[in-house]
Design a protein around this nucleic acid. Sequence first.
DNA 1: ACCAGTGACGCAATAGTATACCACTTCGCC
DNA 2: GGCGAAGTGGTATACTATTGCGTCACTGGT
Lengths: 156, 156
Amino acid sequence: MHCDHTASAEQLVDIAEQRCRELGVRFTPIRRRVFELVSDTPGGLKAYELLDRLSTEHASARPPTVYRALDFLMEQGLVHRIESQNAFVACPCPEPRPDHHGGFQLMICRACGRVEEMHRLEVTALMSQLVAEHGYTLERQTVELVGLCPDCRSAA
Amino acid sequence: MHCDHTASAEQLVDIAEQRCRELGVRFTPIRRRVFELVSDTPGGLKAYELLDRLSTEHASARPPTVYRALDFLMEQGLVHRIESQNAFVACPCPEPRPDHHGGFQLMICRACGRVEEMHRLEVTALMSQLVAEHGYTLERQTVELVGLCPDCRSAA
DNA sequence: ACCAGTGACGCAATAGTATACCACTTCGCC
DNA sequence: GGCGAAGTGGTATACTATTGCGTCACTGGT
Ligand SMILES: [Zn+2]
Ligand SMILES: [Zn+2]
Ligand SMILES: [Zn+2]
Ligand SMILES: [Zn+2]
C-alpha cells in the first residue's frame, strides 16, 4: 500500500528509462536531462529555473523545450506540478501506477521548501465520497498541504 | 456545521460590507466592485478577465488595481484563489470564520466550470493527521477536486 | 536501402499572469 | 491643521506558458 520513496535521483532516472521503454515512449536526452534536474531538486523546480540550468549545457534550450519535456514527463506520471507554486517535482514512486496519477497528496514545508508525496487511498476515498454527496464524479484531485517540516519546526 | 451557501451575489456584497465594517477595514468602491464582479461569476474569474470588465467602467484600472483588490479580498477571506486555474472565486459563506480561511475544499466541474465550496472538518482533520504522521504541522491546505457536476454528467 | 508518416526539436513571437516602484491622494487620528 | 498609514494612479517589468511553423530524426512497412 505504501511504496517507500527512498530511491535516489539516479535510481529514479534508471527506473524512468526502464518504464518508458516498457511503454514504448521515447526517453530522449532532453527529457532525461530535465528529469534528472527535477529529480535532483527535492523542493521542486520552477520552469525557468530549469531552463536556466538546462541552458548552461544545452544552448538552444527555450521555454518550449522545457515545457514540452515537462508535459511529457507529467503525462507519464514521472513529474507532478505543484499548482500552488508553479513548480515541478519528480514523483518519488519507484513504481508509479495509473491509479496514483490523479491521486496523490503533497506536503510542503513553507520554510525549507521540502516536498513529500503521499498517495493515501483514504484521502481519495474521502474525496470521492465528498463529491458524490453533491452528485459530482471525481476525476482529478489537487491536494497540497503547507506547513512546517519536523526540522524547521524544531529550529524555530 | 454546514452553512448553506445559498446567498445571492447582492446578499454576499452586503454581508461583505458589514463584515469589513466590523473588522475596521475599508470596503472601498474598487474593492466593492471587484467583489461584485467575482460574486456574479459562479465559475470564478481570471484576473485579466476581471480587469477587462472593470476597465469598461473604471478607465484607469490596471493590473495592480485588480491584484490589490483581490489580495485584500483574499486576506479577508471573501475571495479564494483556484490554484489549478489561476482564477478567483467568491467565498459563498454568509459568515466566513477564521478556521475556514485555510480549510476549505473546492469542487470544480471540468465541463461547465461550476465551482462549489465546502468546508468539511473531516477533511481538515484527516489532512492534519496525515501530515502529523510525518512530523509536519498543517498551516494551509489547497484541495481542488475536478470532475463532472450532476448536470454535465447527465448531459453526457 | 527507400520512403512515407510521426514525433521531437529549433526558433521566434506572443499570450497570459503577477509584481515592483514611485508619486499623489485620502483617511483616521491627534 | 498636521501627521502617519493606507489606498490609488500609472509605468515598467518580471515571471509563466503557449502558438506556429519549418526541419530533422526515428519508426515501420516495402
Ligand atoms: Zn509513491
Ligand atoms: Zn522545512
Ligand atoms: Zn461556507
Ligand atoms: Zn458542469
